[in-house]
């Protein structure tokens, strides 16, 4: 087994009385890509900040690269590249200056940075905006700059808190591709996201969090296998009638989830199930057959949808 770069046991964070992270355990291994998945307020960002050695834990154990972040903050952070959920670019500086000074914070030499900045500008597709002020960038450009900035020190662990919010589909795919390549180079990735497809694409392993606790852990495929069926049939009857239908439909499939706007029916074969629904004399306004996703895993575990 390879070494564990991040190790948490009973990791807890309280803000006054409120428990944001409630005794979570996990290990992130060297070279893997590890995901934190959960709805708003689950405690993902709070956990990320503790791992980033910028927030003190309330209790529990945490070691990063074998060290306690409370004791060795600067040394641990020297190995981390952090993309926070909210961009915190230096608004008084230009694009290039942002990359430059961030590198200086790591103590990198001017000569090294000169080349590095060009490389990162190309990566973030911001060559034309090199001397623009940060304020004049679009939301997605700022995001790309924040991501590029995190790479300036060639970190061992790259931590991305919802990296692709605000990116257009093309930029998203470019980022995914780039993250794959970093992984091939041996960089360990820690990612939080709301996007199912992103988690399924990027993460070797992930934990599902809710209300500060870990609900389940495994690879995306394994989680889907363990907590859901192969396919899902979604039917809509209009907002008044959905509720009344659930009981009758429930007898037709393994499991059923009733949401305000639609009903989800879990089964191994969706098309076949849909036929049986029609045969029984039900006529949904719309219907859709799809493969199970992490969304369904989450719904099963918590009774709530991930993206409200």
């Amino acid at each position: 087994m390879s070494e564990s770069l991040i190790r948490a046991r009973g990791l807890t964070k309280k803000f006054d009385d409120f428990t944001a992270v409630n005794g979570i355990d996990f290990d992130v291994l060297k070279g893997e890509s590890f995901g934190l998945l959960g709805p708003n307020g689950a405690g993902k960002s709070t956990a990320m900040r503790m791992i980033g050695a910028t927030s003190q834990r309330t209790s529990g154990e945490l070691t990063i690269l074998g060290k306690d972040p409370e004791q060795f903050g600067p040394q641990i952070r020297a190995h981390l590249g952090v993309v926070p959920q909210q961009d915190n670019l230096d608004t008084q500086l230009s694009v290039t200056e942002n990359l430059y000074i961030y590198g200086r914070y790591f103590g990198l030499s001017r000569k090294f940075l000169k080349g590095k900045i060009e490389e990162l500008l190309a990566f973030a597709q911001l060559e034309e905006k090199r001397s623009a002020k940060v304020e004049s960038l679009s939301g997605g450009m700022k995001r790309r700059l924040t991501i590029a900035r995190a790479l300036v020190s060639e970190p061992e662990i790259l931590m991305l808190d919802e990296p692709t919010t605000g990116l257009d589909p093309q930029a998203r795919h470019i980022l995914w591709d780039r993250l794959f390549r970093l992984k091939e180079d041996g960089v360990t990735l820690l990612i939080t996201t709301h996007f199912m497809d992103e988690a399924e694409q990027l993460c070797d392993r992930l934990v599902v969090m809710d209300k500060g606790s870990i609900m389940a852990e495994g690879s995306p495929a394994q989680l889907i296998k363990d907590y859901s069926t192969k396919e899902v049939l979604e039917v809509r009857f209009g907002s008044e009638r959905n509720a009344g239908m659930a009981n009758d439909l429930g007898q037709l499939c393994e499991r059923i989830e009733e949401l305000p706007d639609r009903i989800l029916m879990y089964t191994e074969d969706g098309e076949e199930l849909l036929e049986r629904v029609y045969k029984k004399g039900f006529h949904p306004k719309t219907s859709l057959v799809r493969r199970s996703s992490l969304e369904d895993v989450f719904l099963r575990l918590t009774g709530r949808t991930l993206v409200d």
């Binding site: 952070r77 915190n88 961030y102």
Partner: peptide, 8 residues
């Protein structure tokens, strides 16, 4: 926050 995410 940005500065302190580095080795400073």
């Amino acid at each position: 926050h940005g500065m302190l995410a580095t080795s400073l």
